[in-house]
Amino acid sequence: MQRGNYPPNTAASPPLHHPVPQHPVPIPVMHSPPPLQASSAYGSTYAPTPAMGHPAYGLLNDPTAQMAFQVGGRATEVAGQYVEQNLGKYLQISALKHYFNVSNGYVLQKLGLVLFPWRHRPWSRSGSQRTGASGQMEGYFLPPREDINSPDMYIPVMAFVTYILLSTLLYGLAGRFNPEQLGYTASFAFTIVILEIIIIKIGCYLLNINNDSQLLDLVAYSGYKFVGIIVTLTITTLGSKWLEYLVFGYTFNANAFFLLRSLKYVLLPDTTADNPRSTTYAVNRTQRNRRTQFLFLYSYLVQLIFMWSLSSGFSFRSAAA
């Protein structure tokens, strides 16, 4: 964006600049369609490139160099935009702030919701309208402070750290504390979260769910299960085997139900108007069934495997009892 007013034929370009090609290279425009553009616009992106590249071949005097330099400058400009867009897409620093915009009341309510999701009624995230940077109205989701259904990152991050510390503490209570345990547990928990993201991303790709919800939403949702695991691990110290299984079953069911209901609005976007970011494509019936099945499998089976391995993958259980 800010490279638009950059003079394209300055001889002394800053040293950090991308190397400028000396002859017209139309490739970068082909490589980088803006990710958020509709796929029908792909054809029109290609059209201007030959028109810009070809006259430069015909002229063999000074304007050729000028032309080439301009095309090169444009290529770097496009490449710079591409990098900026992708950085903005994958590393949303400002978007992270949105996830930590929580209040005490929200955290308490959300913890209650994760542990007791049965009676909660509207699960859809509420949004509102504001005037965007381009002057037109755009929809956005309310931050967690104002909307209980919005995913946050505070609870997952805190639960993640607490899980690592708590399981190491349990090792200590069993008399087998080792500083390495901290690293092992952190690595293990990270692996579980990354595996979950990979599974849900592959599922989204295969089922053709092109949601515009960010990766961070999914990371947040996959972190809520640490709350249930912490409760289960705390019960472990009581030493009663049956109570432990009971609590694990309850927290697992609560978490799965919570995920099922919450992810429904992330993965299966409804086309009604009350969703501010509603997608306009029509989903046929079989595809919808498949998506529901995937959602069910993900939030029950996959979560069962992961939660079980997270809460019982350690051998402190028998030693602590």
């Binding site: 092992y184 690595s187 293990f188 990270f190 692996t191 990354i194 993958g313």
Partner: peptide
């Protein structure tokens, strides 16, 4: 049964 980050990377590769 620790399944750390390195096995995950190896598995992906």
């Amino acid at each position: 049964m620790f399944f750390g980050l390195m096995p995950l990377i190896k598995m992906t590769i």
